[in-house]
Amino acid sequence: MSRTQKMIYIALLVAQGVVIGLIENMIPYPFAFAPGAKLGLANLITIISLFTMPKRDSFTLVWMRLILTTLLGGTLSTFLYSMSGAMLSYAAMAFLRMLGPKRISIIGISAAGGFMHNVGQLVTASFIAQSWTVMLYLPILSFFGILSGIAIGIAANFLLQRVQTLQKFQTAYEHETNQNWR
């Protein structure tokens, strides 16, 4: 894969992540008893990037998506919450991916990412509120984060199996890492 192809691929994934993130921000919160709980649809792009490109490139993709989404429709506080959740989630998913396909599936990695995203956001909320009582909200958010992560993992698994362009990038990356996730 040439450098130009790689840059175009990253740019397309970033654009898709930004659009998905902005559309999701326009949707009212679906859970009245869990304000702030969202589906995390833009995480689909993060999962796909983890399985189709090196960690450095996928990490860059996450940062670009965060910054652009904030510039196009967010505030400093939304950036702080999104950034803390996304970075902790990304770190957990990248670590779990290293375990290999015999120990964990794409769906399991995504579910762990959904959970860790909520942990990151609640830790940030605790620092801002200067109270750890915010963490009492973790069980409710964890339930929805894990469910959302499972759904996004299923969608990512489906896309990685059905979209030929993603298969091409995944095959090239699997050849580099000597791990076959299919």
Rank of each mutant, 00 (worst) to 15 (best):
N25I: 10
T171W: 08
L138H: 10
T75E: 08
K38Q: 12
I107Q: 04
H117T: 01
I109V: 11
Q164C: 05
G113V: 00
T46M: 06
G114H: 10
M64H: 05
I45R: 11
A151M: 14
A94C: 04
G73K: 04
L159I: 08
S77P: 01
M1R: 13
G108S: 06
F127K: 03
A92Q: 01
L41G: 08
I48Y: 12
P28L: 01
P54N: 15
K102C: 06
G17N: 12
E176N: 12
T60P: 00
I128C: 03
Y29P: 00
L72S: 10
M116H: 03
T165P: 03
G153C: 08
F127A: 06
K102H: 14
L22W: 01
A172Y: 11
P101H: 05
T52S: 14
S2N: 15
L159C: 06
F115V: 04
A32K: 14
A112R: 04
G21L: 01
F127D: 01
S49P: 08
V123L: 15
R182I: 03
A34Q: 00
G120S: 06
V19M: 08
A15Y: 02
M26T: 13
P139S: 08
G120E: 07
R65L: 09
I146L: 03
T60G: 12
F79G: 06
G85V: 03
L41K: 04
H175P: 00
G40V: 10
Y81T: 12
I107K: 07
W63D: 00
S126N: 05
I23Y: 02
L80V: 12
L160C: 05
A172Q: 13
L61D: 04
F127I: 13
L76V: 14
P139K: 02
R97I: 04
Y90H: 04
Y81M: 14
V18I: 13
P35A: 03
S148P: 10
Q130E: 05
Q164T: 13
W63F: 15
V62E: 01
N180A: 09
I140L: 14
T177E: 09
Y173Q: 07
V163M: 13
T78C: 11
D57A: 15
R56E: 14
N178T: 12
I48M: 08
M87W: 05
L13Y: 02
V123Y: 12
L61S: 09
M53A: 07
E174V: 04
N43V: 02
A92Y: 02
I152L: 14
A125K: 10
Q170C: 11
A156F: 06
Q179R: 15
T78Y: 10
N43I: 02
A92D: 02
P139N: 06
A172I: 09
S84D: 10
I27W: 00
N43F: 05
G113D: 07
E176F: 07
S131R: 08
R103T: 07
I45P: 12
F59A: 11
I8F: 12
P28I: 08
Q161M: 13
E24L: 00
Y173K: 03
S84V: 01
S131H: 10
G36D: 05
V123N: 06
A155L: 15
M93N: 11
G108D: 12
F143R: 07
A15R: 05
I150T: 11
L12H: 09
F31Q: 03
W132Q: 09
Y81D: 05
